[in-house]
Write a protein that binds this DNA or RNA. Structure first.
Lengths: 252, 252
DNA sequence: TGATGTGAATGAGTTCACAGCC
DNA sequence: GGCTGTGAACTCATTCACATCA
C-alpha cells in the first residue's frame, strides 16, 4: 500500500521539507514586491519580516534550495525570484480547470493571483446547462459533459473543485480518470483519490472554527483565572502569525 | 461504572495541541454526517476513515479532550458531537463581519457552512458606496464608514477580510481597533496585528503553487528511476523543458 | 473479545548559536 | 564587521504497540 519511494539519493538532494515548500510561495510574493520596487538585494532579516517568518527559518529554508546568498551581503532579489519560481515549477505553464462556477468558482476565475504565477485557467466547467456559454471572467463556461475532452485537449493536470459537497467526489473521480493528478478542493468533504494524486483542501468553515476555539479560550482566560493547570503564560498563544497552516496534502 | 473513576477532565487539560485543534472540525463534520444518519456509535477506525486520518491519530486527538469512548465499543456519536462542539466553542453564537464584498465575499456570505456551525454573519461591509444597501445573500451591504459601529453594536470578535490586498492592512487595523480579536484573511498579504490577535490566512494562489511543486516533481520522476507503483496517466506534461527557459514568470 | 487510551519510540520542524566566508 | 549557511539542541507531531477495561 505505502509507496516506499522515499529514497531520493539521486542527483541533488531534492528532499525539500513540506513545510518549506509551503513557505516558498510566501517568500516569492515578498520578493516579487521587492523586485517591483527595484530593490537589488535583501537580507534574510528583511525578507523574513516581509514574509512574516523568522530569519533563521528563512535561511534554513533557502539552504534546502542551495546557496543562493552572499555572506555579508544578502540575497540577490531577481536571482532568488527565479530560483524559487523554478523550484515551484512556476516557470512553466500550468493549465487548470475550475469546476463549479458558483460565487466561489467565479471568485477563483477572477482571481488575478493565478495568471500572474504561471497558472492559466484553461476552462470553467459547470453542471448547470443554463450557465453554458455564459462568460465568467471573460471565459465562457462549458458544460460538465465536456470535462474529459477539455482535460485531454488542454493537457490539464491540475483541477480546482468548487462544487457543492455532494458533487465533489464524482467530479473528482472524473477529473482523475481524465488525467488530472493534482486537485485543489474547496468543497467541504473528504475526497478519496488513487495513489499518486495529490489533494489539497481549503475549507472556509474549518478556519473559522479554529479561530473560534482560540477566541473562546481568550474569553475564558479573562475570567476563569482559577485553573491551576493553566501555565498562566500565554503558551504559544496569541499570535499565530502568517503561519499556522496544516499540511493538507494527502498523498494517497 | 462501579468504579468511581469518573472522567471529567474536559475543561482541565488546556494543552490541546494546535494540530489537534485543526482536526477537530474535520471530526465534527464526519460525526455530524453520522448523526444525521442516526448512527449511534462509531469506532475510531470508522470515524478516522470518514475524516481521512489514521485511527491512532484520532484516538490520540480525542485523548486530549478526555475519555469519551467506551472500550470494546467505540464512541457515542451524539455525545462526541456535543463535546467537540463545546471544545471548539461552537455552542455559542459567533457574530462575524465580512469586509470586501466582491465575488469572494459574496461566496462567503452565501456559504452555508457558517450558519450551521454557530457563525452568524452580522454584517457585510464594502468600501464601494454603490454597493451600500444592495442585498447579498439576503443581507444588505453596509459602507465601510459604519465598520466601527457595526462591530460594537453586534459585539463582533471575528472578522473576515476579503478585500483586495492593498486595502487589507488598513481594514485589519480598523477591525482590531474596534475590538475584533480574530481575523480570517483571504487577501494575499501579510497582516501585522498586535499581540493577542489571531490571524489565519487562506491563500488561494499559494495552495496552487504547492500543488505545482508536487506536480512538477511527479513529471520529473516519470523519466527518473521508475518505481512502477504510480501508473500515472499521461498527464499533460506539455512543457518539459526544465532548463534553458528564461523566467517567463513575473514582470521583471 | 474488541475496542479505547496512552507511554514510548520515532520523525518532522523550529530555533539556537556560531563557524565560515565576503 | 556583517550576514549567510548549517550542525546541534529542542520542541512539536505522528505512529507504534500494548496495557486496560467495558
Amino acid at each position: 500500500m505505502a509507496t516506499g519511494r522515499t529514497h531520493r539519493p539521486a542527483t541533488r538532494s531534492r528532499g525539500i521539507p513540506e513545510a518549506t515548500v509551503a513557505r516558498l510561495p510566501l517568500y516569492l510574493r515578498a520578493l516579487t514586491a521587492l523586485s517591483e520596487r527595484s530593490v537589488p538585494t535583501v537580507s534574510s532579516e528583511e525578507l523574513a519580516a516581509a514574509a512574516g517568518v523568522n530569519s533563521a527559518k528563512l535561511r534554513k529554508d533557502f539552504s534546502y534550495l542551495g546557496s543562493y546568498g552572499t555572506r555579508g551581503v544578502g540575497y540577490d532579489v531577481e536571482y532568488l525570484v527565479y530560483q524559487i519560481s523554478r523550484e515551484l515549477g512556476l516557470t512553466q505553464d500550468w493549465p487548470v480547470v475550475i469546476v463549479g462556477i458558483g460565487n466561489l468558482g467565479a471568485a477563483l476565475a477572477n482571481y488575478g493571483g493565478f495568471a500572474s504565477r504561471g497558472f492559466r485557467v484553461a476552462a470553467l466547467i459547470d453542471a448547470d446547462p443554463a450557465m453554458a456559454g455564459k462568460p465568467v471572467a471573460g471565459i465562457p463556461v462549458r458544460h460538465t459533459d465536456e470535462l474529459e475532452k477539455i482535460i485531454e485537449d488542454n493537457g490539464v493536470s491540475i483541477g480546482v473543485i468548487a462544487t457543492p459537497a455532494g458533487a465533489a467526489q464524482q467530479v473528482c473521480d472524473r477529473l482523475v480518470a481524465a488525467g488530472v493528478t493534482s486537485i485543489l478542493n474547496f468543497a467541504p468533504t473528504v475526497l478519496t483519490v488513487p495513489d499518486g494524486v495529490d489533494v489539497r483542501k481549503v475549507d472556509l468553515s474549518i478556519e473559522l472554527q479554529i479561530l473560534a476555539f482560540h477566541e473562546q479560550r481568550k474569553a475564558g482566560e479573562e475570567t476563569a483565572s482559577g485553573d491551576g493547570a493553566v501555565p498562566a503564560k500565554r503558551a504559544g498563544a496569541a499570535n499565530q502569525g502568517p503561519d499556522g497552516d496544516v499540511p493538507a496534502v494527502m498523498p494517497a
